[in-house]
Simulated assay, not measured.
Amino acid sequence: MSQTPNDPAGTTHQFQNFAGQGPQQPEKAPGMNKGLVLGIAAVVVVVAIIAIAVVLM
C-alpha cells in the first residue's frame, strides 16, 4: 500500500492563505430590503387613493 505524505507545513500554509482571503461574498446589511419597503409604501399610497375616491363619491 502506498501512503500519501502528510505535510503539516503545507496544510498550515494553505489554511493561512484561505483565512487571509476573507469572505468571498459580501455580507448583506441587517435590516429590511429597500425594495420591500418601497413596495409596501406604494401599496399603502394606492389603497389610500382608492379609499379617498370611494369616500368622495
Rank of each mutant, 00 (worst) to 15 (best):
M1C: 06
M1D: 06
M1V: 07
M1R: 11
S2N: 11
S2E: 05
S2D: 06
S2P: 05
Q3R: 11
Q3W: 09
T4P: 12
T4I: 12
T4M: 10
P5C: 03
P5I: 11
N6G: 03
D7Y: 08
D7S: 09
P8K: 08
P8T: 03
P8C: 03
P8E: 02
A9L: 13
A9W: 07
G10A: 15
G10Y: 11
G10H: 09
G10W: 07
G10T: 13
T12E: 09
H13Q: 15
Q14R: 15
Q14V: 03
Q14F: 10
Q14Y: 07
Q14S: 11
F15E: 12
F15V: 03
F15M: 15
F15N: 14
Q16A: 13
Q16N: 14
Q16K: 14
F18S: 10
A19C: 05
A19V: 14
G20Q: 10
Q21I: 06
Q21K: 14
G22D: 03
P23Y: 06
P23L: 13
P23N: 11
Q24N: 12
Q24S: 12
Q25K: 09
P26F: 05
P26S: 09
E27F: 12
E27V: 07
E27Y: 05
E27R: 14
K28L: 11
K28V: 10
A29R: 12
A29Q: 14
P30E: 13
P30T: 06
G31E: 01
M32F: 09
M32Y: 05
M32R: 11
M32E: 09
M32W: 04
M32N: 08
N33Q: 13
N33G: 07
N33L: 06
K34H: 08
K34W: 06
G35H: 04
G35K: 04
G35P: 02
G35M: 06
G35Q: 06
G35F: 05
L36V: 10
L36C: 04
L36P: 00
V37C: 02
V37L: 11
L38D: 05
L38I: 02
L38M: 15
G39L: 07
G39R: 06
G39Q: 02
G39H: 02
G39C: 04
I40C: 02
I40Y: 02
I40L: 14
A41E: 01
A41N: 03
A41I: 10
A41M: 13
A41S: 15
A41Y: 03
A42C: 08
V43P: 01
V43I: 15
V43F: 06
V43M: 06
V43T: 08
V45R: 00
V45A: 13
V45E: 01
V46I: 14
V46W: 02
V46P: 00
V46H: 02
V47H: 01
V47C: 06
V47I: 14
V47F: 05
V47Q: 01
A48Q: 01
A48E: 00
I49Q: 04
I49P: 02
I49D: 02
I49K: 04
I49V: 15
I50A: 15
I50T: 04
I50V: 15
A51T: 07
A51E: 00
A51I: 04
A51P: 00
I52A: 14
A53F: 01
A53M: 03
A53P: 00
V54M: 11
V54Y: 08
V55E: 05
L56T: 11
M57L: 13
M57T: 13
M57I: 12
M57H: 08
